[in-house]
Design a protein around this nucleic acid. Structure first.
Lengths: 203, 203
DNA sequence: TTGGTTTTTGACCATTTGGTCAATCGGACG
DNA sequence: CGTCCGATTGACCAAATGGTCAAAAACCAA
């Protein structure tokens, strides 16, 4: 039964429930480590019922990944050539860090996929993602050439923003272990990264 | 058969062969995604033969992880309170980046483990790793207080070094997809990170 | 060569897991 | 109330997988 778009209220609800459960399970165990039983239990449904709403385990995974790319790239899409360069980039960093705080599971799902060679995203990376990054890199390069920010390589600037913000979601366990209790990693990260990029970008 | 330490030449060699194969397979597929058959094939041995040298799949994984922690923390151990602060930290960044270049599989193995909650490393993180980071953070804090480097949070400085260097190994697929062919990500990263930390740390 | 030890493997096993299916359930509508 | 269609599930299956074991092969010292 191909449920391209939900027709009934209950389909809508159950598909969402399954996706939320699958996100939790995939993020924690990776694609192979996750089982349909785990997802079904987490969703409060039976395994055959889960497969009534999605044709396969892989279909659930693919659905999650495509949803992810969309919201994940929003902050970069909003980088505005007409805005103040430093402000634009600072806002981008902050919004990216907000994503790490509010959606750590999505971040880990994505990280799992990329680390293992992005077997289900290769094309999306080389086309959509590359196009967007190239476009925004041109904007940043323009700012640099105009002397409005320091002369940094735009691609690596973007990579550094990704690396630094996602690190706080993906490696949360390590960070908490090292910092010990009683500290708020994400809050500290916000001011640290603000300072870091201020110093890096100042003309 | 518990082969705590190899007694014969052939044991030594086969254990190393298996660990090398397992590193490749675990890094690419994660613990659950890797199968003993994959490891055996990669090692050029039969599955029962692999289990002759290691008691279980998990034992292979644990062996790799403990080996990893050791070499992985060496550069941080060498951070010398008596050296020139900027130089010491620059060397640390460069050596960490060298590890990403030379041992990307180890980096991904570690990343896989941490992202999934470090089920087999929790204790090592909270004890050994925390102790080392706290010790070196104290040194960095001393440099900052003496005005020899900028006033940065030492823990987050170390996190940022980890994030930025390991990103080039763990997310290599993404970076290559975005940069396209004909560029050398690691070479570019070296100069980019050198500049980034120069600006960040200058008093 | 021989006897004993180490190494290797084919056959096998129990469990897990993704997925199927016929049968049942349940609610909305006439 | 009865019918129909979407929703749910217990039972089941085939393949994959971690691991075992007895026997064969390779090796080595005397």
């Amino acid at each position: 039964m191909g449920l391209q778009q939900p027709r009934t209220r209950i389909q809508q609800k159950n598909r969402e429930t399954i996706l939320a459960a699958a996100l939790e399970v995939f993020a924690q165990h990776g694609f192979r480590g996750a089982t349909l039983d785990m997802i079904a239990t987490e969703a409060g449904l039976s395994k055959p019922n889960v497969l009534y709403y999605f044709p396969s385990k892989e279909a659930i995974h693919v659905t999650l990944l495509s949803q992810l790319m969309d919201t994940w790239l929003d902050p970069l899409r909003d980088l505005d050539a007409g805005g103040d360069p430093i402000t634009e980039l600072r806002v981008y960093v902050r919004r990216k860090l907000d994503l790490s705080r509010d959606y750590p599971r999505q971040s880990r799902l994505f990280a799992n996929e990329i680390i293992q060679g992005a077997p289900r995203m290769q094309s999306a990376l080389a086309t959509d993602l590359k196009a967007l990054v190239d476009e925004k890199s041109a904007i940043i390069a323009g700012w640099a050439k105009a002397g409005r920010i320091a002369d940094v390589d735009p691609h690596h600037l973007i990579f550094s923003i990704w690396a630094l913000t996602q690190h706080y979601a993906d490696f949360e366990v390590q960070i908490r272990a090292v910092l010990g209790d009683g500290r708020d990693p994400l809050a500290e990260a916000e001011s640290f990264l603000d300072m870091l990029f201020s110093r890096l970008l100042a003309p």
